[in-house]
Nucleic acid binder design. Structure first.
Lengths: 202, 202
DNA sequence: TCCAAACATGACCACGCGGTCCGCTTTTGG
DNA sequence: CCAAAAGCGGACCGCGTGGTCATGTTTGGA
């Protein structure tokens, strides 16, 4: 389609600097991170930011895209793991660890970013569904759990842990373990509400 | 101490209007809710807002204070319930329902608001600790759960459910049930991380 | 070596924010 | 019924924001 010629050397370098700086700033200040701060951290003029990313949302989308894609790749790899239950737990662990080093939880409030993001996200949803199906079939998780549940619960451990200001950076592990215990078949009580319908087709 | 004479009739009315409007606006837009919008919703001038609450944070603190206090009252009542496990679940249900009708989750980012808020919050923490201790002694929850865990997990169901834009308003019930199953002794796996230290004494 | 195209820059713009202030209106108590 | 006190409104201020643009600088192929 729009086969763009390769970036000039300095432009490519600045783009990487910007992505790194933006990730850091977004992690620190959420959506309120300012373009000026990002530019400063990258050692670059403010105008340069907008040359690479037309809009603040575009910049955010570029970061989010990388994260979701990496998560999807990890998930697909885990599909071939022998122990389906362990594979699901491992996936959640990877997701939490990723989220710990760069908290993008605020993107909840961010409306549909890019259409590109939507596509990659749909892919990841599909991968998660397959991971969950496999785990459910082997009896590693309770029967009344859907893929959408895991996608939603994925972010909970970090969220919970983030309420403690000066906590150990590994505190999320505790809450992931608790939540995962709630997903196991042993001692499961019936759920009072059906799972949500998937938000994005496929 | 500072025994203030009672508010004038119109002032008292406006104060209530402001609190209601602010709650609604904060719920909708988080901390980014604007004073101007709050004033408009209350049918009041912007100056009036600052007459009642010196600062935006003070306004937020007033709202938060009510919520935490109500929660604490409910918790103290539940301390006298016969079934300690059911009492804890009921507490979490009340907390989630309250949070569902007014999401104040963003106050995570809000630093220490008021000293008043800190006091009431410490009281609530204490109440929760007693609820959890009781439930643990009766074997209703696993032995390795601390009061701080419940305080942290309290907000998780709403958070998780809020990721689905057009979900049923009761979706949180599903995730509260899952998480509570993870708190039960049956099928509990050892936790990989100790509980956090309480952030506020007592 | 040279030059056109690609890129970087930071002053600049319009805007919305939290917060202030003072002239005006409403309430209250005697 | 009336003055004094309390409350109200909204124009106004300074600031930081996302985004633009004209000007100057760097790059890379010929």
């Amino acid at each position: 389609m729009t086969s763009t010629r390769p970036l000039r050397a300095d432009a490519a370098r600045n783009r990487q600097l910007l992505l790194a700086a933006a990730a850091e700033e977004f992690a620190r200040h959420g959506l309120d991170a300012s373009i000026a701060d990002i530019a400063r951290r990258a050692g670059v003029g403010k105008g340069t930011v907008f040359r690479h990313f037309a809009t603040k949302d575009d910049l955010l989308a570029a970061i989010v895209l990388d994260r979701i894609d990496a998560l999807n790749t990890a998930g697909e790899r885990l599909l071939h793991e022998a122990d389906a239950g362990a594979a699901l737990l491992e996936f959640l662990t990877i997701a939490a660890r990723q989220r710990q080093q760069l908290d993008l939880s605020f993107l909840q409030e961010a409306g549909e970013l890019n259409s590109e993001v939507g596509k990659v996200r749909a892919q990841m949803f599909h991968t998660v569904n397959r991971l969950v199906d496999r785990a459910r079939e082997r009896g590693a998780v309770r029967a009344d759990i859907a893929g959408a549940d895991i996608i939603l619960l994925m972010c909970a451990p970090n969220y919970v842990a983030s309420y403690v200001p000066d906590a150990s950076p590994d505190l999320w592990q505790r809450y992931l373990a608790i939540i995962f215990d709630g997903l196991r078949p042993e001692g499961a009580h019936p759920l009072p509400h059906p799972p949500p319908v998937a938000e994005h087709g496929a």
